[in-house]
Computed example of a mutant assay.
Amino acid sequence: MGLDAVHRYAMIPPGKLLRPLLVLHAALTVGGELGAVLPAAVGIEGAHVGSLLHDDIIDRDTQRRGRAAVHTEFGPAQAVVAGNALFFSWFATLSECRRLGVPADRVERAMAVQAEAGVAICRGAFDELAMRGDLELGVGAYVAMARAKTAVLLAAACRVGAILGGGDAPTTELLGDFGDHLGICFQIRDDVLPYDPIAARAMGKPSDSDVRNRRPTLPVLIAHRRADPESRAALRHALLDETEPELALCRIRAVLERTGALDTAHAMADDHARRARELLTRLPATAHVAHVRALALLTRPAH
């Protein structure tokens, strides 16, 4: 069983393909050619999947997309190496774009965006580990972590697509800001899913992962800040001391409902989605811009 087989298992069937679609539509929005930037779109999906391979090991999650996670199917060491290879392939695909006619200066600028994003993603993942069990964490610190962990890659997808497609600096930055808001929206809605019984059943991965890993996601932080002393103590016990993840999840859900934390988290996600859409109104109303706008719908909950 070789590396290619592990990659095939990890990437097929695919997820939403949000990041590669952002690369392609950003490029088309600025007048780029689809064929010339397609390798970069494939590369960014590889980088995303590589991060999922590592995330599942860190979180000890045994399922991904409704089946055995890569480290469960092939082994943790194989998953680490396969994830590393996918990260490197992200940069290799830029060379393919150059071969297909993208000017060297654009490839160089896209390379710099990808490298900066890669470091930021690692920083975000590291910060998330440091935040485990910290219920006093402020919402601002959470948003900064979500931006680095998730939004940076969506923003990079938009910027890379725009750069490779020949977009000017203002348009490239506008599309990058769109991806930033979209990414924060995406992360918040992902954090809410485990606490929605209907959506949790369709997640394709363990719904108790955040609880098992003592991860203070946005709705939990909001609830802890609003709760009365009794509910705050119950929330703290469920996240930090409860040994049965399913029981902890049920108890946390109850506190979130009492405090209205889920509604507030949804409202924050909606606000970032609205800000993302508003940015696009500054661009000409073309079919490609409409396609970029439609990608915001992919952040909506599965149900």
Rank of each mutant, 00 (worst) to 15 (best):
residue 42 V to C: 06
residue 101 G to D: 10
residue 33 E to G: 01
residue 23 V to G: 03
residue 46 G to H: 08
residue 95 S to G: 15
residue 72 T to W: 09
residue 79 A to V: 08
residue 19 R to W: 05
residue 63 Q to W: 05
residue 46 G to K: 02
residue 40 A to L: 10
residue 77 A to G: 11
residue 75 G to Y: 11
residue 4 D to M: 13
residue 75 G to L: 05
residue 74 F to E: 08
residue 28 L to E: 07
residue 57 I to N: 06
residue 100 L to Y: 02
residue 94 L to G: 00
residue 2 G to N: 14
residue 99 R to V: 14
residue 83 G to P: 11
residue 85 A to V: 15
residue 73 E to P: 02
residue 89 S to R: 15
residue 10 A to G: 01
residue 106 R to K: 09
residue 101 G to Y: 08
residue 43 G to F: 09
residue 58 I to C: 10
residue 86 L to K: 01
residue 77 A to D: 13
residue 34 L to V: 04
residue 81 V to F: 15
residue 60 R to L: 09
residue 87 F to L: 13
residue 18 L to P: 00
residue 14 P to A: 09
residue 51 S to T: 13
residue 74 F to Q: 07
residue 69 A to M: 12
residue 72 T to Y: 05
residue 44 I to E: 00
residue 22 L to W: 12
residue 80 V to T: 15
residue 46 G to D: 04
residue 98 R to K: 13
residue 55 D to M: 09
residue 66 G to D: 04
residue 98 R to H: 12
residue 29 T to K: 02
residue 102 V to R: 08
residue 93 T to P: 00
residue 37 V to T: 00
residue 84 N to H: 15
residue 82 A to E: 03
residue 56 D to R: 03
residue 23 V to H: 06
residue 5 A to P: 00
residue 53 L to D: 06
residue 97 C to G: 04
residue 25 H to I: 03
residue 80 V to H: 05
residue 54 H to M: 12
residue 1 M to F: 02
residue 85 A to W: 07
residue 90 W to H: 11
residue 65 R to C: 10
residue 20 P to H: 01
residue 92 A to R: 15
residue 3 L to H: 08
residue 51 S to D: 01
residue 32 G to C: 00
residue 42 V to M: 07
residue 61 D to P: 00
residue 96 E to R: 12
residue 91 F to H: 10
residue 37 V to P: 00
residue 7 H to S: 00
residue 70 V to A: 14
residue 18 L to F: 12
residue 58 I to Y: 05
residue 100 L to I: 05
residue 39 P to V: 04
residue 76 P to K: 10
residue 45 E to Y: 02
residue 68 A to S: 14
residue 96 E to L: 11
residue 29 T to E: 06
residue 57 I to V: 13
residue 41 A to K: 05
residue 90 W to S: 12
residue 81 V to A: 15
residue 90 W to M: 15
residue 51 S to W: 01
residue 61 D to T: 05
residue 78 Q to H: 14
residue 18 L to H: 05
residue 98 R to C: 08
residue 103 P to I: 10
residue 15 G to L: 04
residue 106 R to L: 13
residue 85 A to Y: 09
residue 69 A to F: 10
residue 6 V to Q: 04
residue 41 A to E: 03
residue 50 G to Y: 04
residue 59 D to G: 08
residue 10 A to D: 07
residue 48 H to E: 03
residue 80 V to R: 09
residue 44 I to T: 01
residue 50 G to P: 06
residue 22 L to V: 07
residue 1 M to A: 05
residue 71 H to I: 13
residue 87 F to M: 11
residue 67 R to P: 06
residue 79 A to Y: 07
residue 70 V to C: 13
residue 40 A to G: 03
residue 11 M to D: 00
residue 84 N to G: 15
residue 73 E to A: 15
residue 17 L to E: 10
residue 91 F to C: 07
residue 48 H to A: 02
residue 87 F to C: 06
residue 27 A to D: 01
residue 29 T to G: 06
